[in-house]
Design a protein around this nucleic acid. Structure first.
Lengths: 340, 340
DNA sequence: ATGAAAGCGCTAACAT
DNA sequence: ATGTTAGCGCTTTCAT
């Protein structure tokens, strides 16, 4: 029952299969790689032997001998974050459909040692290319080191001309969302930032642009961390300022925190102040009030990244391509016209 | 700028390094694998050559030649789920500290073809062992196929005697949480289940046990999906029954949905009905009312799984071990004594 | 259609 | 301390 076939009987090799089927090793290889010229009888014997021995080809040996890698590496930051996780799923699904494995390397910080470790790990693997989720500084750092070494596709919200890139046009979406708030009649829109990947996020840029274009005052930005609770503190602070009637948050989780902080201080949403988020987190619709936000198709984003990588590999000139898509504003209940 | 060194110049091999440093290949290998007997001068020449050529050892070749794998495979279901993602992070971090890579295989369904694919992918990799997240049927199916083939550690809430296992004692925790509700004075506690991995979840078992032990009536269970929105529908349904004063939900996201559904129907939480969840999701504290729940240390769970795997590899007798931990009830605002 | 031979890039004996 | 020789498990010529 709970005993184990002692020293984990060594995995069978192709030679074992060949012996059992009384054929040569290359014949086994031919059978397993589908296609070509093998007589029906031998094919069957081989298949039987494979089944009997429960043979699995060694990924390492295959990669080494064929020099034709069949995996793509993905470098990602915090995988618990909703957007990351969904994008990863999109990449994984699409790769699978293309017959590629995905090897995920997680990177937490942009310290040189960490970046080194990840770069090494990626480059030492038999891969066709890399997809870097560069929403954050570690991602950016890794990308910088990988560019021009092998096919790389970046996934992010900001354009980077050195590589092919799958994007969600955060800037335009943020501009649109801010515009929506302004159209509702708000005098200006305050902005709570999530930790930016470079100098400035697309979300912040879009917000600023919308305000400028409308000739509105551009208030100081407030900063949140990735912790939803940090939004709550910001919400309380915001509640102290009567001039605040509309707040655009860097993501939905922060928005939820801000709503809560505002409520703590006795301000109602959306009656006293409108709050909008970004991402369309699965809980946004359930939140009270349900959150007006921007829907981002992260899963599709991952798919597009894989397709870009495929194109780049097929044709080496297919580099520096852009696959862009504008996220859609989702109007729900957390934003309303300002009260007289 | 945006051009690429044409046909991606072939990666340098150890032989290239050896040539450039005027030493033999094994010497390069010795330098790179740390330790032993290499003269200072040669070591330096090798290191310089490595740097100049930007050499990275091939993972495949190394695995093949040394037959000493340095990766662990992780089989996981839906990685967007909070608990999965956190456990994965724990595994990843701990493996990294042990110098192991992690290879993640995602499995969505328990269809035989899918299970086959994942099993093949896992077994063809040069790995020391597998960690299976068996919270759901696909995980269970994979585990069944992998047992006795190589070191396997299961991660879940229910005991499985065939393998080593890192657990969170959901049953006891659920019992405790239900007991807490009963102690508050509720006549009984209703239960909304999340999709179970086997016949019955530990959460459900613990709930039932607590009711039985207190001599209370055991109401019919209600079912939710993994979608938080499904909880909302359940909440509305629950609101129709005046006998419902306390609800234990299979996870926090469902609990949030249930609260919302109850509110939709005009019932207040916790005044009219108490609602508790499970997991201590990052948003639970922010929810209004903040959710009474059970904190699960998923990150630690992942760590423990890796340690178990380590122990099993060191000593083949170290099989079938159990690393258990009881999650802690977190009292917040969504549960209160029944009114009148 | 099939087998023999060579070799992928590395590590592990074995010499010296 | 260092080089030489094998070989990991597979794929790929190249014969036949």
């Amino acid at each position: 029952m709970s005993t184990r076939p002692l020293p984990a009987t060594k995995a069978p090799t192709m030679a074992d299969v060949a012996r059992l089927a009384s054929v040569s090793v290359p014949t086994v290889s031919r059978v397993l790689n589908g296609n070509v010229n093998v007589s029906q009888s031998k094919r069957e014997r081989v298949l039987d032997a494979v089944k009997e021995l429960n043979f699995r080809p060694s990924f390492a040996a295959r990669a080494l001998a064929s020099a034709r890698p069949e995996a793509v590496a993905v470098v990602s930051g915090n995988t618990s974050q909703y957007g990351y996780a969904e994008t990863l799923r999109g990449i994984e699904n699409t790769c699978r459909r293309e017959g590629l494995s995905t090897i995920i390397s997680v990177i937490d910080s942009d310290e040189p040692a960490e970046v080194d470790r990840v770069v090494s790990q990626v480059l030492s693997q038999p891969i066709v290319g890399v997809i870097v989720l560069k929403f954050d500084p570690p991602g950016v750092a890794v990308l910088d080191r990988l560019v021009d070494k092998l096919p790389v596709v970046a996934v992010s919200g900001l354009r980077d001309t050195r590589v092919s890139q799958a994007m969600l046009d955060e800037t335009r979406a943020a501009e649109e969302l801010t515009g929506y708030l302004l159209d509702l009649g708000h005098a200006t829109v305050h902005h709570v930032r999530v930790p930016p990947s470079r100098r400035e996020d697309g979300r912040t840029t879009g917000w600023r642009r919308a305000l400028r274009r409308a000739g509105k005052e551009v208030p100081e930005t407030l900063d949140a961390t990735w912790e939803p609770a940090s939004g709550r503190a910001v919400g309380r602070r915001l509640a102290e300022d009567d001039g605040v009637t509309a707040v655009f948050c860097g993501n939905d989780e922060i928005a939820m925190g801000v709503v809560r902080g505002l409520n703590d201080a006795g301000r109602r949403v959306p009656e006293d102040v409108s709050v909008v988020g970004f991402d369309d987190h699965p809980l946004s619709e359930l939140w009270a009030p349900s959150l007006t936000t921007v829907r981002q198709d992260f899963h599709g984003l991952g798919s597009r990244a894989v397709q870009l990588l495929g194109a780049e590999i097929e044709d080496a000139d297919n580099v520096g391509r852009l696959s862009n898509e504008r996220p859609a504003v989702v109007v729900r209940d957390s934003a309303a016209p300002p009260q007289a």
